[in-house]
Design a protein around this nucleic acid. Structure first.
Length: 547
RNA sequence: GGCCCUGUGGUCAAGCGGUUAAGACGGAGCCCUCUCAAGGCUCAAUCCCGGGUUCGAUUCCCGGCAGGGUCACCA
C-alpha cells in the first residue's frame, strides 16, 4: 500500500509544516534547572469549580516555587461544550483567589511563545503529525459509524469481554487500499485511529509524582486520534501540546490514570519524551454514608461562585486547599501565623494519595481565622465588596457610613483588646452581625427570662443613670448597682456562694440590658456597643424594650 | 464485570520494622468571664480483616474485603 499517497488523500491540507519544523518553532524553554513548567488545561464550559482551583493551585505552586512557568491552555476540541466568555471567567475566578497565569490564552505576556493556546487554533500542528503517523503506518482511517461501534460494544459487554476497538474488533485496521479509496470516494466520514503496537500482556511500572510506582498495562486500543471533524481527541492533543509547550509536569485528576497507557504509547510513536505526571486525587463528599467524588450537578459547594456568594475570604479558601494539598502546610501555618502561604515550600510528592473529604468545618475555621487577622479597614473593604454584589439595599445604605462601620468592626473584631475575636466567618454572616447597629435592621427578640417587674425596673433604672462618658468599669459599676434593687446579687462570688438567696446576679442584669440594646442575649462588649450607638439611641432602646 | 488507585480517630492526617501512634478541625469538660466569641487547660476517639516474613509489624509480602476511578469521534 502506498502510505504516502494514502496520507495525502486523508489529510489533503497543502499548507502543513513538516513535523520536524515544530521542534525549532517551539524550542526547549530556558528555565532554571529543576524548574517546573505546568499548565491548567480546562475545557471552556464556563464552569470553573473547586476541583479546578485545587488543581490550579497545585500547578501554580509547583511552577512558582521552582522558578518555572504556569500557563493556561484551552482544550476546546469538543465544539459541543463551548460556552461564550468561559475563558475570561476562568481567569477572573482564579484571580479572585489570587492565582495568576504567566502565559497562555487571553494572558498578556511576552512569554506567549508556545501558542496558540486554544487547541482549535492548533489544528495544523496536529494534522501534520497525524499525517506523519499515517505515512509511517502507525495510524489508519476508520469508517465505522457510531451505531456499528455501539453494537460491537454491546456484544463485548454481553460476552464480558473488554470493550473497545482493538484486535479482531478493529474492523478498519486491515482495510485494503481499494476499500479505503472506495469509502473515501463514497464520501463516508472517517476518523483516524492509532494503530496500536501494544499488548495488554505487557506490564510495566510507571512512576507517578504523587502515587509513586504504579503498574501500567500497555495500550492495545486503536484509539481515535483525529475526529471526523478534523480535530484531535484529548489524548492526541495532550501529547502534542504538552510536548511542544514544553510542559515538564502534568498535574491532572486521577480519572486520567486509566488513559495513561494511551498517552504513553502516543508519546512513543510520536518520538516524544513523556512529561512527568502527577495524578491528584479527587475532592470527595459524604453522601448517604459513603464517600463520592464532588459532583457539579449535585453539589453546589463545588462551584466557586458558592464561596463568593457565601462570602468566604478568598485567601482562606486557598489556605484550606493548601492544607489538603500538602498536609504539612497546616503545621507550617501554626508556626508562621502571619506568613504568606507562598513562602511555604510546596512539594508535589507530599500530596495525599487518597481522596480527601471536603471539610466545611475546617474551611469555616480557616476563613474565620484569616478574617480575624485583618485590620478594620481591610475587613470593611472585604465586607463592602460582598455587599456591593450580594447585599440588600439596606446593607448598601449602611455601608455608606464608613466611620461608623470602622467603629463597629473595631469592636466586633476585638481590635485593641488582648485577643482578637473571631465572630466573622463569612461576609454573608458577618454583615448580619452588623444589623442591630442600625435602626432599620434592628429586629429584637424580647424574650426575657425574668418577670415584667424585674425587667422594667432594670431597664428604667439603667436608662436613667446611663452616661456615655463612663468607661467600662464605671459602666459596669452601674450595672452592679441595679442588681440588689431587683433581688439579684451584684457580685458573682456572692451569688455562687449562696445561689438560693438571690433571684439572679449581675450577669442577668446585663442580659436584660443586652437583649434591650442588641435584641439578643449574646453580643460583644455591651458598654462599647452602647457607646457606639450613642446616648439617645441607647436610652430609647432601653425604654422601648419594656414589657 | 475487566483494569488501575486507595485503606491510621467523626474529618484532614504525621508516621517509613521497636513511638506513651504527632498535630489540626469537630465533639465533651473545666478555667477565664457581664453574655457570646476568642484564649488557656484537660478528656474521649484511629492503625480494614486474615495469613506470612521477622526476635518484633501500623510500617514489608501475599490473599481477602471495603471505598474510589475508568472502560466515548467528552475532556
Amino acid at each position: 500500500m502506498d502510505l504516502k499517497k494514502l496520507a495525502s488523500a486523508l489529510i489533503p491540507d497543502t499548507d502543513l509544516l513538516a513535523p520536524e519544523k515544530y521542534e525549532e518553532i517551539f524550542p526547549p524553554r530556558t528555565v532554571p534547572n529543576g524548574a517546573e513548567v505546568t499548565r491548567l488545561a480546562p475545557s471552556p464550559t464556563g464552569f470553573i469549580h473547586l476541583g479546578n482551583l485545587y488543581s490550579a493551585l497545585a500547578d501554580e505552586r509547583a511552577a512558582h516555587t521552582t522558578g518555572g512557568v504556569f500557563y493556561l491552555r484551552i482544550e476546546d476540541t469538543d465544539e459541543k461544550r463551548k460556552v461564550e466568555g468561559a475563558v475570561e471567567s476562568v481567569i477572573r475566578s482564579l484571580k479572585y483567589f489570587g492565582i495568576k497565569f504567566d502565559e497562555g490564552a487571553e494572558i498578556e505576556s511576552p512569554l506567549n511563545k508556545y501558542g496558540p493556546y486554544y487547541q482549535r487554533q492548533r489544528a495544523k500542528i496536529y494534522r501534520s503529525f497525524v499525517k506523519k503517523l499515517l505515512e509511517q503506518g502507525l495510524a489508519y482511517p476508520c469508517f465505522c459509524t457510531a451505531e456499528e461501534l455501539d453494537e460491537v460494544r454491546a456484544k463485548q459487554t454481553e460476552s464480558k469481554e473488554t470493550t473497545g476497538y482493538y484486535g479482531k474488533y478493529a474492523k478498519c485496521r486491515n482495510l485494503t487500499e481499494e476499500e479505503i479509496y472506495a469509502n473515501l470516494k463514497a464520501g463516508k466520514p472517517f476518523v483516524i485511529r492509532l494503530k496500536s503496537q501494544g499488548s495488554i500482556e505487557n506490564k510495566t511500572t510507571f512512576r507517578d509524582a504523587i502515587k509513586g510506582d504504579i503498574t501500567v498495562t500497555e495500550n492495545d486500543q486503536d484509539v481515535v486520534i483525529l475526529k471526523s471533524d478534523g480535530i484531535p481527541t484529548y489524548h492526541f492533543a495532550h501529547a502534542i501540546d504538552d510536548h511542544f509547550m514544553r510542559t515538564t509536569l502534568v498535574i491532572r485528576g486521577e480519572e486520567w490514570l486509566s488513559s495513561l497507557p494511551v498517552h504513553i504509547e502516543l508519546h512513543k510513536v510520536l518520538g516524544f519524551k513523556p512529561p512527568r505526571y502527577a495524578h491528584t486525587c479527587s475532592l470527595m463528599k459524604m453522601d448517604g454514608g459513603t464517600k463520592r467524588k464532588l459532583s457539579k450537578r449535585k453539589d453546589p459547594e463545588l462551584s466557586l461562585d458558592y464561596y463568593r456568594k457565601a462570602g468566604y475570604y478568598p485567601q482562606a479558601v486557598v489556605k484550606y486547599l493548601m492544607t489538603v494539598l500538602n498536609s504539612n502546610f497546616e503545621e507550617w501555618t501554626l508556626k508562621n501565623p502571619d506568613g504568606d502561604y507562598k513562602d511555604f515550600k510546596f512539594k508535589i510528592d507530599k500530596m495525599g494519595k487518597s481522596g480527601a473529604l471536603f471539610d466545611l468545618d475546617k474551611l469555616n475555621d480557616t476563613s474565620k481565622t484569616e478574617i480575624s487577622k485583618l485590620s478594620a479597614e481591610e475587613c470593611l473593604a472585604f465586607l463592602k465588596g460582598w455587599v456591593d454584589e450580594f447585599g440588600t439595599d439596606a446593607d448598601k445604605a449602611h455601608f455608606e457610613d464608613k466611620d461608623y462601620l470602622i467603629k463597629i468592626l473595631t469592636l466586633i473584631m476585638g481590635i485593641g483588646g488582648k485577643k482578637r475575636r473571631k465572630d466573622i466567618e463569612r461576609a454573608e454572616q458577618g454583615v448580619r452581625l452588623l444589623d442591630y447597629f442600625f435602626d432599620d435592621t434592628f429586629n429584637p427578640d424580647y424574650s426575657y427570662r425574668f418577670d415584667k417587674h424585674t425587667v422594667n425596673t432594670v431597664l428604667e433604672k439603667f436608662a436613667s443613670v446611663y452616661d456615655p462618658a463612663d468607661d467600662n468599669s464605671a459602666w459596669f459599676a452601674k450595672v452592679k448597682a441595679i442588681a440588689p434593687e431587683v433581688g439579684f446579687a451584684s457580685e458573682m462570688s456572692e451569688y455562687k456562694a449562696n445561689p438560693e438567696a438571690f433571684k439572679g446576679n449581675v450577669s442577668d442584669v446585663a442580659e436584660i440590658l443586652r437583649i434591650a440594646i442588641t435584641g439578643s442575649p449574646n453580643s460583644p462588649d455591651l458598654c462599647t456597643i452602647m457607646n457606639i450607638l450613642g446616648k439617645d439611641r441607647s436610652v430609647a432602646r432601653l425604654l422601648k424594650a419594656k414589657i
